[in-house]
Design a protein around this nucleic acid. Structure first.
Lengths: 220, 220
DNA sequence: TCTCCGTATTTTGGATCCAATATTGAAAAT
DNA sequence: ATTTTCAATATTGGATCCAAAATACGGAGA
């Protein structure tokens, strides 16, 4: 392992495993519904089952995996109802976050969001699905973090995690990527004018488009 | 151990520990801020540290304990800002839940909520703080569950858990208990008339009163 | 007396081993 | 042929043991 990797590697095995599992799920390497064989996964990640199980417990709390006693863990599978419910809850919480954020938004905050958007546009143009997903997330979370409501931001993050497994498929389509870029620009425009109402409205449209695109993917 | 206890005892040690820890925290036996010594706790509960740590991971996800790598777990301590944030989020989510619930409320649902209220009144009259806490929770959660939004209900439950450690103090006061009974009656009245607006309004008042009473307790 | 440093102790993190439960498959009975 | 039962196997749950990190403590130096 390179020194760089060694430096980045988390201080505990469970955190390392947690990161790996999250990536595996969000990138689709572990597909929804897949049962998780602890022994095999532990060996693959070169750790024992103990830290693996603690990481899985964390993911269970976040809703990324499900757990049944004596049966084990599965990558969580979202029903259509689940998807709609998650997005409805996101709508409620994100509106609150955006309003609080706009009320406190500094120029520096705005610059950070703009920087994230530049990254989004770069990834969209390059067709880099993974970079697109992370940059998009940064764009939104940077805004939400400006609300100064850490628990709210954490809840929203968890809700995003829930659908991450499906979002990567979504960015595979060039049309979707282009649309996301445009909608972000509209939101940024509202933010620059410190218009909470417009920001909320544009982001609601943004979210509704996403769920509309995601729904067909879940039928299969 | 009696056969009855044996039957009730969960099928896995981690679930047993989880329940015990939750009780210990909500009843105040484990006070906010206290560090959790895994060895001592494990011995006290007659299990090894493995299931204890998995239970703690679950509680961490729920925000009842905090965790720092190589430092361990502490019973979570709420700042005043945290308290206000939690209650603000609850306001958002519970309004949604109540509106959805009222729209679907059957007579049978209503009977179950009324039954919970009878239990609340019994506990309030008897001055039984623990019974009061659980009955009150049943009253509200029964309503929220009627919304048919399981993820929303789960989120709300988690938010309640966060402040449970403080709520038990709150019911120690007879005046608070009496007020809760009255406010519940008002909410029930609104529910019987299927008035979502009034139900939301009365429950908002109910919640605001609670946070107002809780705030002084957190200063210390 | 105070600070700094190094060692001893405590506490957490992780690996291995064993136990308990669930699943699978094959044989026997209908 | 179908179903049921029981044993073999796979998989999870938990206990013990060891390693690593953090904390506490005591002594040396200023």
């Amino acid at each position: 392992m390179s020194p760089d990797e060694a430096r980045r590697r988390p201080p505990t095995a469970q955190q390392f495993v947690l990161g790996e599992l999250r990536r595996a799920i969000t990138t689709g390497r572990l597909r929804p519904g897949t049962p998780i064989r602890q022994d095999a996964l532990a060996e693959e990640l070169q750790v024992s089952r103990v830290p693996l199980r603690e990481a899985l417990k964390t993911l269970e709390g976040e809703g990324l995996v499900t757990y049944k006693p004596h049966k084990g863990y599965c990558v969580a599978m979202l029903s259509l109802d689940d998807l709609r419910e998650v997005y409805r809850i996101r709508e409620l919480l994100e509106e609150e976050a955006v309003r609080a954020a706009v009320a406190r938004l500094t120029d520096d905050d705005l610059h950070r969001i703009e920087a994230a958007q530049e990254e989004v546009e770069r990834a969209a143009a390059a067709g880099d699905v993974a970079a697109m997903a992370t940059a998009n997330r940064t764009f939104h979370m940077t805004l939400f973090d400006c609300a100064g409501m850490p628990r709210l931001a954490r809840l929203i993050r968890t809700l995003w995690d829930t659908t991450d497994a499906y979002r990567s498929m979504y960015y595979g389509d060039a049309g979707n990527r282009e649309r996301v870029v445009k909608e972000h620009r509209a939101a940024l425009d509202a933010l620059r004018r410190r218009s909470a109402d417009e920001a909320v409205a544009t982001l609601n449209v943004h979210r509704d488009r996403a769920v509309a695109e995601l729904e067909p993917l879940l039928d299969a």
